[in-house]
């Protein structure tokens, strides 16, 4: 039997398959199920600063008068306390139902808020924290330096304040992706997961409405993560996990060959049910047996940028010459 152990989130995991933060990980019962099915780790549904803001707006609307200004003034802190208390409860219950690490996922807008959320989540007993750095660069006034600064500030704040491992999950909207990964690694994060997914807008031309496209990833998306895992895994000093579009064990193996230490999966479980986890693990083990690999270390990163025979294939943005071959 192959040894599937790997290291991510600053923790030793039994295998590289991590259940990603999603609606599948928002209840202690689901966490228990994934734990029993043999997940390497489970990332809880994210707690968002937006939840606090939305609730605050609801309350402010119902109590908007001059008399309540003082009462409402810092009411978002009360809401935040409740939101975090509920999340803390989820963390505690998930932990008591799980044999594998339970990771809290937080998503904030400001450095100060990260700090508060992170400390409270640590106190609730999470094994590690995943900072979900999810800023869509759609603000006309915000340039790359601003975003860059935001991410580093958030990470610095949290690392200073908590003792448990802190990892980050980033988007691929960076003009300096390699550079920011290097800087995050240097700050001391326990892992970088690439990439998270924004919700996707679509247009219904009959109703003439903007709608949300399907929430699940498609398998093709995995190629984006694959390129960057291959490009960066051997060159930055921090573990990497691949995410988005990993739907079967073949794609898991690809990521490991490219140098990933783990993968995060959600959509595949939505599509195929939680027990699919066992199939993923089986697929990985069967391939390892066929190839004669006894542990992940024997093939992990074999095809990363530094190791591969033709590294240019990772970097080439133009495929003109490829198509050029047809002319």
């Amino acid at each position: 039997m192959a040894d599937l152990k790997t290291r991510f989130f600053g923790l030793e995991l039994n295998n590289p398959i991590i259940v990603a933060s999603s609606g599948l990980t928002d209840k202690p019962e689901s966490v228990k199920e994934f734990s029993e099915l043999g997940a390497g780790a489970i990332v809880l549904k994210s707690v968002f600063e937006e939840e606090v803001i939305n609730e605050y707006n609801q309350i402010a609307q119902s109590k908007s008068s001059a008399h309540f200004e003082e009462f409402i003034d810092y009411f978002d802190y009360k809401i935040r306390d409740q939101v975090l208390a509920n999340y803390g409860k989820l963390i505690k219950e998930a932990k008591s139902n799980s044999q594998v690490p339970v990771i809290a996922s937080i998503n904030c807008v400001s450095a100060g808020d990260w700090l508060q959320f992170a400390s409270q989540v640590q106190d609730a007993g999470a094994d590690a924290i995943e900072l979900n750095l999810l800023v869509l660069p759609s603000d006309l006034e915000r340039n790359a330096a601003n975003n860059h600064q935001f991410y580093l500030d958030a990470v610095k704040e949290v690392l200073r304040a908590v003792k448990i491992p802190v990892s980050v999950k980033i988007s691929n909207y960076f003009s300096d992706l390699a550079c920011i990964c290097k800087e995050l690694a240097n700050e001391g994060v326990a892992g970088i997961t690439m990439f998270n997914r924004f919700s996707t807008p679509d247009i219904d031309i009959d109703k003439e409405k903007v709608v949300q496209a399907g929430a699940l990833s498609s398998p093709d998306e995995h190629l984006t993560a694959l390129r960057w895992v291959g490009l960066l895994s051997s060159r930055i000093n921090c573990p990497i996990a691949a995410s988005s579009g990993i739907h079967d064990s073949r794609q898991v193996i690809k990521m490991l060959l490219a140098g990933a230490d783990a993968v995060q999966i959600a959509s595949a479980f939505y599509k195929n049910g939680k027990p699919y986890l066992k199939e993923l693990l089986k697929g990985l083990e069967n391939w390892m047996d066929k190839k004669g690999y006894a542990s992940l270390g024997q093939f992990k990163g074999k095809l990363s940028l530094e190791k591969v025979a033709n590294p240019a294939i990772y970097e080439r943005a133009q495929f003109l010459s490829h198509f050029g071959g047809y002319s």
């Binding site: 803001i53 605050y56 707006n57 609801q58 402010a60 609307q61 109590k63 908007s64 200004e69 409402i72 807008v109 400001s110 450095a111 100060g112 808020d113 601003n146 600064q149 935001f150 500030d153």
Partner: peptide, 23 residues
């Protein structure tokens, strides 16, 4: 954390928004 005023929230008052890096 230094703040700046953003969009109004539901109470009609402008929401304080953190200025990145301004600590």
């Amino acid at each position: 954390q230094r703040m700046k005023l953003g969009e109004p929230d539901a109470s009609g008052r402008r929401r304080p928004v953190p200025i990145e890096g301004a600590i």
